[in-house]
């Protein structure tokens, strides 16, 4: 909104305009008022960082996106297993906003996972599945036929394919948040996050968890779980979100059994590479029994989401 436009308007109209602008919600953020307090007790690790929340006016809770989740799984040395993906044949089962939003996140994570392993034909199938979910939610132009064509045209260009996936996911989430549907946007994110957790924990299977990079990535999700809960808490007036909050809240008791200890961070900038390394060390404590408990709970949760 340009200042020039402001100067051309009568004062009363300008005032109304300012009010209208301030009413405009944007993104998956929450505008805080003094009485709108958050529960801050979810995690000892993040207690310090989250206790300043009330003083800020705009709050964003950012979860790893489907693309970042898939990248983390791959970089941890995981192998590709198509059997783990939610079948595209299930798309017709999803008819409610809740199921379509959850599975938009789930299919986008599956799509990202397949793409990072250069499974182009599968990627196209899953882009179509995600499109069906987005269309069902009334998300206009997030994924169109042109998107599918672009995927096919860039079959050997993974950077471009990742860019297309990132763009379509942003289109969906921005459409929902900008059209006053932030609750659905949060459900999409949580669906994608649970799918990543499911794929990673299933890929570990019965393998030894000691020194296992994929297990480390799963344990790291204790940090993101805290953000998941805040994101859902912010939207719990929505009945679908309230249901998911109850379902996913069951993971808390298991994550609470995992202990992550981290030393303080020392930021070391490297002028040559223009990258700052945040140096610190962390240790994790998790028993095979707790990991198995987490695997089972995640499997059950994901099964509920795709059924």
């Amino acid at each position: 909104m340009s200042n020039k436009l402001f100067s051309l308007m009568p004062i009363k109209l300008t005032a109304i305009l300012i009010i209208a602008v301030s009413m405009a919600g944007c993104g998956s953020e929450k505008r805080k008022s003094g009485s709108d307090e958050l529960s801050l007790s979810e995690s000892e690790i993040s207690a310090g960082i989250l206790e300043d929340v009330n003083s800020a006016k705009q709050i964003f809770y950012s979860l790893p996106s489907p693309l970042e989740t898939a990248m983390l799984i791959k970089n941890a040395g995981a192998s590709y297993n198509e059997d783990l993906l939610n079948s595209v044949d299930n798309t017709s089962n999803y008819t409610t906003n809740k199921s379509m939003a959850l599975n938009l996140g789930i299919y986008t994570t599956d799509l990202s996972f397949a793409s990072l392993f250069d499974q182009t034909q599968t990627s196209i199938l899953y882009m179509n599945a995600a499109k069906r979910m987005a269309d069902g939610l009334g998300i206009l132009d997030a994924i169109d036929n042109n998107t599918i064509d672009m995927l096919e045209e860039n079959i050997n260009n993974r950077d471009r394919i990742m860019d297309i996936i990132s763009e379509t996911f942003m289109n969906s989430s921005s459409f929902l948040t900008e059209n006053e549907r932030p609750a659905l946007a949060s459900i999409v994110l949580v669906g994608g996050w649970v799918e990543g957790l499911y794929i990673a924990s299933t890929l570990v299977g019965d393998a030894n968890i000691e020194g296992n990079k994929l297990v480390e990535r799963i344990v790291d999700q204790k940090l993101s779980f805290d953000i998941v809960m805040h994101l859902l808490e912010d939207n719990k007036d929505n009945i679908d979100v309230a249901e998911i909050l109850t379902e996913i809240g069951d993971l808390k008791s298991t994550f609470d059994k995992i202990i992550i200890t981290t030393t303080s961070i020392q930021a070391v900038p490297d002028e040559e590479t223009n990258v700052t390394v945040l140096k610190s060390k962390s240790t994790i404590e998790i028993t095979p029994e707790v990991f198995q408990e987490l695997q089972e709970k995640v499997k059950m949760l994901r099964s509920n989401f795709i059924s």
Partner: peptide, 28 residues
């Protein structure tokens, strides 16, 4: 590569925002 997440808002001069995110080891 953009991760695909969308965080944007209208802010007025003097306004603040905060974002909470987990960042993972060995990732640039």
């Amino acid at each position: 590569i953009h991760d695909g997440n969308y965080h944007a808002a209208i802010l007025t001069v003097g306004e603040e925002a905060e974002l909470y995110k987990t960042f993972y080891s060995d990732t640039d």
